[in-house]
């Protein structure tokens, strides 16, 4: 690959990956080629030493995604967070193995938490429906009131569980991303 081919391939890879500041990034590599030329280096040799444009573009994309993740002025998006997580795992597959055991334990806890939340919600609904049916066959006022308050309490509990689980899930995802990002420094492929 000569200089122009390299820059062109890098630009299109950056564009494909949605990286901003493409001109700025490309100019760094243009300067690199220029300076190498002054030293009497051959363009093919220089681009071979630089590496694959696609791999380089991935490094820029991951950095910009992580930066966007850390921007607290933006609302936290789970789908985007999982995309970043996926990217980091693909870039650093051995992380996946290390994370597998503690990861599956944490995942199990999260799943159990969400299941518990759903069970609470479902039982609240169940009491409402049975309560309504029971009311048709005429129940004492006292039982009616106690059913009503239990249902209310269960709905409240469900709401608290949902909020709690949202917080827990979010912090686990953020922690995993920070951990993977730290780890990534050790494994970014050549």
């Amino acid at each position: 690959m000569n200089k122009n081919e390299f820059i062109l391939a890098l630009r299109s890879a950056l564009q494909k990956n949605g990286v901003k500041d493409i001109d700025d990034i490309a100019s760094d590599y243009e300067e690199h080629f220029q300076q190498a030329k002054i030293q009497g280096k051959n363009e093919d040799e220089v681009s071979r030493k630089l590496g694959t444009p696609e791999v380089i573009a991935k490094a820029y994309e991951t950095d910009s995604m992580v930066l966007q993740m850390k921007d607290t002025s933006q609302p936290f998006k789970f789908t985007f967070a999982f995309k970043v997580l996926g990217r980091l795992i693909v870039l650093a597959p051995f992380n996946f193995l290390i994370l597998l055991i503690p990861g599956s334990i944490i995942l199990a806890i999260v799943v159990i938490g969400w299941a518990l939340t759903m069970v609470t919600g479902a039982s609240a609904l169940a009491i409402v429906t049975t309560g309504l049916q029971a009311n048709l066959i005429n129940l004492s006022a006292w039982v009616g009131v106690s059913i009503f308050s239990t249902t209310l309490a269960l709905f409240g509990l469900t709401a608290i569980f949902i909020l709690g689980m949202m917080l827990i899930t979010k912090s686990i995802v953020v922690f995993a991303i920070n951990y993977l990002r730290w780890n990534l420094k050790f494994v970014l492929q050549k």
Binding site: Y29, H32, T52
Partner: peptide
Amino acid sequence: EISEGTLYPILRRLTE
């Protein structure tokens, strides 16, 4: 011994 192109993303990140 490195892929020389991977240094520029590091430079950019450290600048940011």
